[in-house]
Structure formats: C-alpha cells, structure tokens
C-alpha cells in the first residue's frame, strides 16, 4: 500500500503501449495471424475440416501467438493494479523478474484454459451445427454467466492482492502463484465475454473492442455481494460523462 508514483506511471505507460501495439496488430493484420485466435468457426461455418488444420504445429504456434496478442489487447489494462502490487513489494533489483513471473503465471493459465475451450469448441464443431446455433448458444451462456453470482465472486476475488514474500525462492514462487490465481479469477469472470467474439463468423474486431470495454468497466467497479442480477458495466461511460461535466463546468467558470 506504500505507493511509488514513478513505478505506477511507468507501469501505466508500459501497459498502455502494449495494449496499443496489440490493437494495432489486430487492426492492421487480422489475418492470418489473428485468424485462428478469434475464429473457431470458419467463414463457411463449422466443419470436420477445422480439426486437422488446427492440429498442425505451425498453426498452433500462430494460435498461441494470436491468443497472446488478443490477451494483451483485451486484458492488459486490467493488470495495472496487480503489476503495481508486485513491483512495489519487491526489492528494486528484482522488480523486473517479479513482474515477469507474474505475467508468465497469468498468461500460462489463460493459454491452458483457451486450449481446453478450443478442444471443446472443436468437438462441438464436429456436430456440424449451423454457425448461428453456436452463436446463439454461446450468447445464452455468456448472458447467464454475466448475471450469475459466480461471476461477481470471481470479480471480487480478482481485487484481492495477496501478500508476497520478498526474499529468495519464496518470492519467485509467490509472484508466479499470484499470476496463476489472479489469472484464474480473471478467466472465471471474463471467459464468456472473450469467447463471444471468437464464435462470430465476422465482426470480430468490433466485438472484441466492445468486450474489452465491458471487461475494463467491470474491473473498475468495487466488489459487491454475489447475487443474481443484470450487470450493466458502464463504469467507463460514467467516468467519461462525469469528467466531461467537470471539464465543461470548469470552462464555464473560467469564461465567467
């Protein structure tokens, strides 16, 4: 909780830079790099032919790289507080190492989960359902998850920044474990929102941008009691409106 202003500003700048680079890659060159990352159903719909293509090793490398880019674009803004937590609780000479271990833990758990989801989706694709069935199914699941107390509990847990050891192997293991647990709670809260763009036959980038907005908005909300409720994460909109009003009224005051 003892904060270092320089550490925070560096983390914010770095994370935003990574986020911008990731979005640039997505916008400039969505195919072939991003093709498999957010495209579980081919443009012609699901088919048995999806399976052997994906299983090619080269394609798998593209897939993982695409996921990392997608993760950087959609999730990196939510990691500022956690990275700051790790950096400020580490010795100066070990800050880079600690942040690296945290990110390795975080990304690994996402890749493992994405792989599992991919296998499930590919299995479903073997059923050769019309693509709109898959979209409707995922939409219903995503909506129910959004309203569920499990989602709120996951969001709450992602706010809990655990104590970390500072010395030796214990420090390394703690930061790695923190990355894994923090990533797990993020996945639990965001997986449905991130899955949705992946099943769309088109409009992925717009859907990803919308989901990113929702995910960041949700993370700006304070924890709440987990209950079933309709969740409209409009925190970013609220902040924008409030700040615009303040700016507008201060300009009026200056004119007077």
């Amino acid at each position: 909780m003892i904060e270092n202003a320089r550490i925070r500003s560096r983390i914010v700048a770095s994370v935003l830079l990574i986020c911008i680079i990731a979005w640039t890659i997505i916008l400039v060159n969505p195919a072939p790099l991003m093709f498999h990352a957010h495209h579980l159903v081919t443009y012609s719909g699901a088919s048995r032919s999806s399976f052997p293509i994906i299983l090619l090793l080269r394609q798998l490398a593209y897939l993982v790289l695409g996921w990392v880019i997608m993760l950087s674009a959609m999730m990196s803004p939510t990691l500022i507080e956690s990275i700051q937590h790790v950096a400020e609780r580490s010795f100066k000479r070990q800050r880079g190492r600690a942040i690296g271990l945290f990110i390795i833990g975080y990304v690994t758990v996402w890749i493992v989960t994405n792989s599992a989801i991919l296998l499930i989706m590919l299995s479903i694709s073997l059923l050769e359902l019309p693509s709109h069935h898959l979209i409707i199914g995922v939409s219903i699941i995503a909506f129910l998850w959004q309203c569920s107390p499990i989602k709120q509990r996951s969001l709450n847990r992602a706010h809990n920044h655990r104590e970390l050891a500072a010395f030796g192997l214990a420090a390394d293991l703690d930061t790695l474990y923190f990355g894994i647990t923090h990533g797990s709670w993020c996945i639990s809260s965001c997986w449905a929102l991130m899955l949705f763009p992946m099943v769309l036959p088109q409009g992925h980038v717009a859907a990803m941008a919308t989901m990113t907005f929702l995910i960041v908005s949700e993370r700006l909300e304070a924890p709440k009691t987990p209950t079933w409720h309709l969740r409209f994460p409009g925190k970013l909109i609220q902040i924008s409106i409030a700040q615009t009003q303040i700016l507008f009224s201060s300009q009026l005051l200056k004119q007077e």
Binding site: I2, E3, N4, A5, R6, E88, R89, S90, F91, K92, A165, A166, F167, A170, A171
Partner: peptide, 11 residues
C-alpha cells in the same frame, strides 16, 4: 515520493 524502496521484510 518516487524514491520509495523496499529495504526488508518479514515474509
């Protein structure tokens, strides 16, 4: 405030 640095801990 930018110079704050960890010196030691009880883990």
């Amino acid at each position: 405030e930018n110079s704050l640095e960890l010196v030691g801990t009880h883990d």
